[in-house]
Design a protein around this nucleic acid. Structure first.
Lengths: 206, 206, 206, 206
DNA sequence: CATGAATGAGAATTCATTCAT
DNA sequence: TATGAATGAATTCTCATTCAT
């Protein structure tokens, strides 16, 4: 007798999936991949270890999904900003500010996902993630250079450097000097650094 | 009657130590700390696992030494450059170029050592390493700002961003677009990015 | 929806725990702590090495529990006897006989647990065990001396000597001459030795 | 060309052998067999690990020899005392006192060698050692019983109990109550315990 | 479908023993 | 002969994955 999967069941399944990814995300943000053992994820999600494997074929696959989910969200926001209204300069600054602000406020996924080595599978996903971030900035830079708003430069390298710059400046644990700064000032300084790096001129004042 | 340790033996011992650290360095550069198990290091060094412990008291201690060695060398070179002759701008560019060139040429330690979490012991060493790099650039920036050669900026953040920028731009595996670039051009672009970021003005041409 | 742990599973878990401690006890009795490696215990219990760690946090903890369990049982019996009815002499003899009889019948834990050095954790537990045995005899001796039934003596030393005397006389592997004795006679002789040692007079004969 | 082993060399060899056994004895006395690794013995003897194997075929063989040496010395002294002049009672007391006094004064070999399990080879040697001690007391007891000075008793068991009694009462770490006693009083109490146990009557006073 | 007990392949580390120098 | 570097098997413990209930 085949059981029909009820709507209720569907919801529960979806809910579990979300709880698992959320738990994984938080654990990775706190202690890196090392701290996010299947047992820990299961406990945090309120499920058994076995249940995890009903939703994900392996630990690596789980983290790939978590990473992709986080990156997708980030990319959507960044794309909205970089493709929005305003001068290229304004959009660049808004994008950097938006990214860094979320990284500072939320648990810092960016760090673990951009930097920490892991399974080859996760590694591949991370490479793609970095490229995805890079690509968004690259498009913006290309347009800015084309319109003459930005000076000529290697947009490939500039995009990667931007990603690297804010990653490092935000990474936990950050150098002591930076940890002491007010986070608003810190974000502003990062934005300013990237602006200067791309535009090659000081902020127009007055 | 004590037997004197022969010169030959001395050499062999020193050679083993070097082989171990070299193997560790390469394995970390390739696959992170995870891939650098004692067994793997021993095999790569052409020794048994037990032999490693004759040279290093623990796995963590081995990696701390490898890290510190790499950082020390790098810092000496950077300090020589940033404290040398020329304008602040010239010294900044020379420092970035020097660092990136070595990173491109050698196996990329910077990546694993600046970013990847590991043992608490290694973690502590890495934090110090990042601060050490940062400090060197910070001093240079501070002097440049003081002399009026560089515009006012948060030297803390700028220094961290510089380190992050070239780390990311060099990190293996780098984005495809960058890997395709000629390494000379890549280095030049990175230098140029940092120069603009700090000076906030285009390169004076002709 | 939490699945209730079935009664069957409960039983199996409890059974495993018992099998583990039993295996540990037997192995220690046979070959000391040295022979009771986790692998050996697991094999004897019909489990994998990993499974042991679901029941005990460490090898030391396992042995501490086994020791404490054995000592607790023994102390309860001894206390019941030494605090029971009859003259102090009768209770002393009954206690020694009870202890030695069980030691002869069961696998000889007393030996390993009273004598063999091991982990600091186990060591601490063993010291307490020896003192626990000693204390029971000490109380009995003290009362006997106070009532005038026993001659004046160092109850500290006498208690320790009693424990040592029967431990040695029972220890596996015992001297050949003793192993050849009928166990009933052996027990009787041990009891008699302790009786004389404490009372300092021959058994009153009808 | 065959080298004749010079007298000087002979002496050095003998000296090394003694240094090794002495180092082993001390280390075992301090930390049991566990603490007496070949490396530790070699270091304490001022030799290399390899050199140990020139004098002893294995670690076990070394400890067997050390044990046998200690036991031989002890047995000689005990035999001299138990076979000497005086009443059986006097000789019993003198023997117990002599043994316990040396155990208290010297590093406590008795403990490790009488009680601690080790290699099967050492185990066998220890069994023999215990029997050797036992035998000496057994002979004394037998003569005392034969002459009517001691009451009838199982000399096998009594001898083992005597060995066990003083071993326990001397064992490090001894129960707290005993450790606090003055060592002279402790020895006296042990002797008295054994005397009463064998003779079954209080010390004749006055 | 959910559970979590069990598995078993490593991981780091230790140490008796060997052997080139 | 003495040295001590090197070996490698053994040990404790971890954790992704499986599967009986």
């Amino acid at each position: 007798m085949a059981y029909r999967r009820s709507a209720l069941m569907e919801e529960r399944l979806a809910g579990n999936r979300v709880r698992i990814t959320k738990a994984a995300r938080q654990l990775v943000a706190q202690g890196g991949f090392r701290g996010a053992s299947i047992a820990a994820v299961a406990k945090a999600a309120g499920l058994s270890t076995g249940a995890i494997y009903r939703y994900f074929p392996s630990r690596a696959a789980l983290f790939v999904e978590v990473l992709e989910e986080a990156v997708r969200r980030e990319c959507e926001l960044l794309t909205a900003i970089t493709g929005g209204a305003g001068s290229a300069e304004q959009r660049l600054c808004a994008a950097v500010e938006s990214f860094t602000r979320r990284a500072v406020e939320g648990p810092n996924l960016a760090y673990a996902f951009i930097a920490e080595p892991a399974d080859p599978q996760v590694e591949a996903a991370r490479l793609l993630a970095r490229e995805a971030f890079s690509d968004i900035f690259k498009r913006l830079l290309r347009r800015g250079v084309a319109s003459g708003e930005f000076p000529r430069q290697s947009v490939e390298v500039s995009a990667a450097c931007i990603v690297g710059a804010f990653t490092e400046a935000l990474a936990h644990p950050a150098p002591r000097a930076i940890r002491r700064m007010d986070s608003g000032k810190r974000i502003e300084a990062i934005v300013e650094f990237c602006r200067r790096a791309v535009l090659g001129r000081p902020r127009a004042t007055g």
